[in-house]
């Protein structure tokens, strides 16, 4: 078997608020192999987003080790983290997080800007990614001209345009009605079927059942 894509060992994240310390994550061990589709499920406040931030290299554990695609994250500085994010991870957020007043095409092309690609290549790849998600006729629309489901598909196109090893989705259907939510889940399943590793966070067990594996979070701990 190949080396795991994600390996968390004894990872804790403790917020130090001065007088009190909030343990958002405690002693988490988690391994994700390439090609998996994992759902992290848990009630509100259980530490799902905290876990996702750490897995997504936006935050660092206060204890334990995290290895992403063979790279020990603790050894990286902020620029190193940014580079690892840019190369390895595509993010999909609950609230889409598209750049405002920026066309779908430019939104999708932006991650490639930070990889140093030429404008021509960026736009070509962004257009292809949007077409794959059925938005070929919406490339020039700005976020306010798109429906929620369309915005989330733009966000997925943006996450995929760099061909990342890992797609990280935090409540990707949280803001969508059931029909567009189901569309998004279909897209994620197809992507996983095509070999993409997906880690998805949700509090909705219906949505979670689409994934091939589920882990549950309670009060900052993983429960089987």
């Amino acid at each position: 078997m190949s080396e795991p894509l994600i390996q968390l060992q004894g990872v804790s994240r403790i917020y130090d608020l001065g007088r009190v310390q909030v343990a958002a994550l405690q002693e988490v061990d988690l391994t994700v192999e390439p090609g998996e589709f994992l759902a992290i499920v848990g009630p509100s406040g259980s530490g799902k987003s905290t876990l996702m931030n750490i897995v997504g290299c936006l935050d660092r554990p206060t204890a334990g080790t995290y290895t992403l695609a063979g790279t020990p994250v603790a050894e990286l500085n902020d620029d190193g983290l940014a580079r690892l994010r840019s190369r390895t991870i595509g993010f999909v957020f609950q609230s889409y997080n598209l750049l405002p007043r920026t066309s779908a095409l430019e939104n999708v092309a932006t991650p490639l800007l930070y990889q140093g690609l030429s404008r021509k290549d960026r736009l070509a790849r962004a257009r292809a990614a949007l077409e794959r998600l059925g938005l070929g006729d919406r490339v020039d629309h700005v976020p306010t001209e798109l429906s929620g489901g369309q915005q989330q598909r733009v966000a997925i196109a943006r996450a995929l345009v760099t061909e990342p090893a890992l797609l990280l989705a935090d409540e990707p259907t949280g803001n969508l009605d059931s029909a567009s939510g189901a569309d998004v889940m279909t897209i994620l399943r197809e992507l996983n079927a095509a070999g993409r590793t997906i880690v998805m966070i949700t509090h909705d067990s219906d949505v979670a059942s689409s994934a091939r594996r589920q882990v549950h979070v309670r009060d900052g701990r993983l429960v089987a």
């Binding site: 940014a82 993010f91 997080n97 405002p100």
Partner: peptide, 16 residues
């Protein structure tokens, strides 16, 4: 601020 957060999440470094 939010735009800056998005840009950082999708690969921008501080210096970018």
């Amino acid at each position: 601020t939010r735009e800056i957060g998005i840009r950082k999440a999708i690969g921008a470094r501080g210096r970018d």
